[in-house]
Design a protein around this nucleic acid. Structure first.
Lengths: 219, 219
DNA sequence: TTTTATACAATATGTTTGTATTGAATCCGC
DNA sequence: GCGGATTCAATACAAACATATTGTATAAAA
């Protein structure tokens, strides 16, 4: 057997460098040379652990979901007792906002991946899957909140989930550009969640499932 | 005098090609050669009308604002009488959504420009200016709606503006990825606007002006 | 000890890129 | 019809890039 090296660990180290570059200057700025330099290794090493640049970027992108879900979990756990479904939901959504350095990096890489997914079918599939899980989780919290009487029972869970996620996404976007302060972001999120108490009943046809996909960018 | 050629018109033609490529495959896919091919002209011509690629991309990006504002104007004019401030506001926000081919192209280029602005100071300034105008316009409609009694008078106009724009942005983003149907998007927007009727009073400190910019990506 | 697969580093290769250069065609005032 | 500026096509070129190739060190296995 060869020299004892933790293969996965090495790959993760290099992927970290990709993250740092992607967060700082976008996925397009990811160069093999720079990744090597950022990771403090030779370009030969990077090549050894990744067949191609695409392979490297794909691996780094794959880690996005686990990173996001870890952030969500961490935030949810920090909710003090008694934990109402709505409070947990708020923590979850807050976890998606770039309010700290790690969150900012995650959001920046997320944006880059999202953007690239518009013209990369493989990445798009990955992205859709992550999004579906997020939608499902938010919806379940919403249902729990409705059951607990925190919000009206006769809401449209899917529509409200979309509304919450859209708002969170928009706020995150604004934070990346520093359009306003973190406190404003929190206030906006609270305002949105508060709006659930006056949520209207389901609208026929509005909460319909995803349509037969409009082709995003050209292939 | 030289050959009679409408200089600006030529530049605009070439910029159109940039738009088409950027919408289809992102700003990063914009190559001098491809722009020339897409516009059906020689590389030499592209070079003649634009000093550099940066110059070309910057010019194309500059047209974003006018294009967005034109869309907004068009949508606002289509509102049937009697035009209440809230109806006009809804039309304005709807105009920002990628609900038709032109809107989709605008949104895609907008996203590309926005993304690049995160690491391009010049572009960032341009983007900020456009955003400021948008915020001002939405806020004025909100004030008008409050004055007309369509929504509570004691709302926080700036915060509500941010909420509306964030929601619109998030919905637009979801539409680009075809996460749901256009009707759902409209329902979401209506839901958001409806929420204004139950808007809370201003929160101390929340609607504060933009902070001393957190540095976006590294320079 | 010899073998063999791994783990790299160093360098070569060929493509893609923006841009510089060169020169020809066009049109206007004269 | 001549001169000179404008327009723009063709091509050349250097830099940047991903990747292929080659060589060497290491350490477990035989």
């Amino acid at each position: 057997m060869p020299r004892q090296v933790d293969h996965d660990e090495r790959r993760r180290e290099i992927a970290e460098a990709v993250w740092r570059i992607a967060a700082a200057r976008g996925l397009e700025a990811v160069r093999m040379r720079e990744v090597a330099a950022e990771a403090g290794v030779s370009i030969g090493r990077v090549q050894h652990y990744f067949e191609s640049k695409d392979d490297l970027v794909a691996f780094a992108a794959t880690r996005l979901r686990s990173r996001i879900e870890e952030r969500i979990r961490r935030h949810a756990e920090d909710v003090p007792e008694p934990r109402s479904p709505l409070l947990v939901l708020r923590a979850l959504l807050t976890g998606l906002l770039p309010l700290d350095a790690d969150g900012r990096e995650t959001a920046l890489v997320g944006l880059a991946v999202f953007h690239r997914a518009l013209s990369d079918r493989e990445l798009a599939k990955l992205y859709q899957r992550g999004r579906a899980r997020l939608v499902a989780e938010v919806m379940s919290h919403l249902a729990a909140a409705a059951a607990a009487g925190e919000i009206p029972e006769r809401i449209d869970p899917r529509l409200e989930t979309y509304a919450l996620l859209a708002a969170t996404d928009g706020i995150a976007t604004d934070l990346l550009h520093a359009h306003y302060a973190p406190e404003t972001a929190r206030a906006l999120l609270d305002r949105q969640i508060d709006g659930l108490r006056n949520a209207p009943p389901p609208v026929r046809g509005a909460g319909a499932p995803a349509p037969p996909g409009v082709a995003p960018m050209a292939p």
